[in-house]
């Protein structure tokens, strides 16, 4: 029987990172996850709107959560930043009931719904490990990864209350998943370090140095590629890796793929793309 959950793609999956969107649907179908669209859901503010108006960002998120709640569903997202943002609002509403009521009143006035704290946010990673189970994932593998894969978690969801039962500072969920998918996880120090994604367009050199540090740490630890749990950080690690390498003077060339892509490939979807990835990882190297 399929597990039903509402799907929130985040800010990037339906824009710059369309490959995530390509992969999430087939992989969920394979694993018996029934995704329910929330067509009314808006951007969550990306922690950018929060800088000007935390209340507005919380209201946007509360409205999205309320839309899922009205269907009696939790929310699944593929983006660590989006998951962290939703958990922030959930925590804020729990800690400050009067603020929650105030925001809910506005959401109710404008959208006719309110968030009562029942619908929770789940990141794809935690949902696969905790709800679907690694055993089921392992059984569904058709094309084992057979690559040395470094997991990138980022900092957005690596805090108590936002990363399921995983350790916030020394997580292992993604490594367990990589193993279940037939790959070899590569340990490296900076897997939870931020790459400064919110400041990609505004702060140049420190962001590039942070990006380069993660890439070179993974590469020097023996990784063939990095799999990212965050769609936003993906842009830093991927599109900007040559620029980061130049600024930091480090070897940063490496294929980057999103968690949803990795799972989809191992489950037998897009074998052509997987072949291309293996070629890049093992032959071209970047």
């Amino acid at each position: 029987m399929a597990v039903k959950i509402a799907y929130y793609p985040g800010n990037a999956a339906r824009a710059a990172s369309s490959e995530v969107e390509d992969c999430i649907q087939p992989l969920c179908k394979t694993l018996g996850i029934q995704l329910t669209e929330i067509p009314k859901a808006s951007s969550d503010g990306g922690n950018i709107i929060k800088q000007s108006s935390p209340k507005l960002q919380h209201a946007l998120v509360a409205r999205n959560l309320a839309l899922a709640e009205s269907k009696g569903l939790d929310v699944l997202t593929t983006c660590a930043t989006s998951h962290g943002i939703m958990c922030d609002t959930i925590d804020e509403f729990k800690e400050d009931r009067s603020f929650a009521n105030h925001v809910n009143n506005i959401v109710a006035r404008t959208s006719g719904i309110e968030y009562n704290g029942e619908s929770q946010s789940r990141h794809l990673l935690h949902f696969l490990v905790e709800e679907i189970g690694l055993e089921k994932v392992r059984d569904a593998v058709i094309n084992p990864l057979r690559l040395n894969v470094a997991a990138y978690y980022g900092s957005s969801m690596q805090r108590s209350g936002a990363c399921g039962d995983d350790d916030p500072f020394m997580p292992t969920y993604m490594e367990q998943l990589i193993t279940a998918l037939g790959g070899t996880p590569v340990e490296y120090d900076l897997k939870c370090q931020s790459v400064g994604a919110p400041s990609l367009l505004t702060i140049n050199k420190p962001v590039m140095r942070m990006t380069a540090a993660v890439l070179s740490d993974a590469k020097s630890s023996g990784a063939d590629l990095i799999v990212s749990a965050c769609t936003i950080s993906h842009a830093n690690l991927d599109s900007y890796q040559s620029k980061a390498g130049k600024i930091a003077r480090k070897d940063t060339t490496m294929p980057i793929l999103h968690l949803a892509e990795m799972v989809a490939f191992a489950l037998g979807h897009y074998p052509d793309r997987f072949a291309q990835l293996r070629t890049r990882a093992l032959v071209i190297g970047g």
């Binding site: 922690n47 900092s155 957005s156 805090r159 916030p168 931020s194 400041s199 942070m210």
Partner: peptide
Amino acid sequence: TDFTSVAR
């Protein structure tokens, strides 16, 4: 660059 790294 990223306050989430502090907030955690």
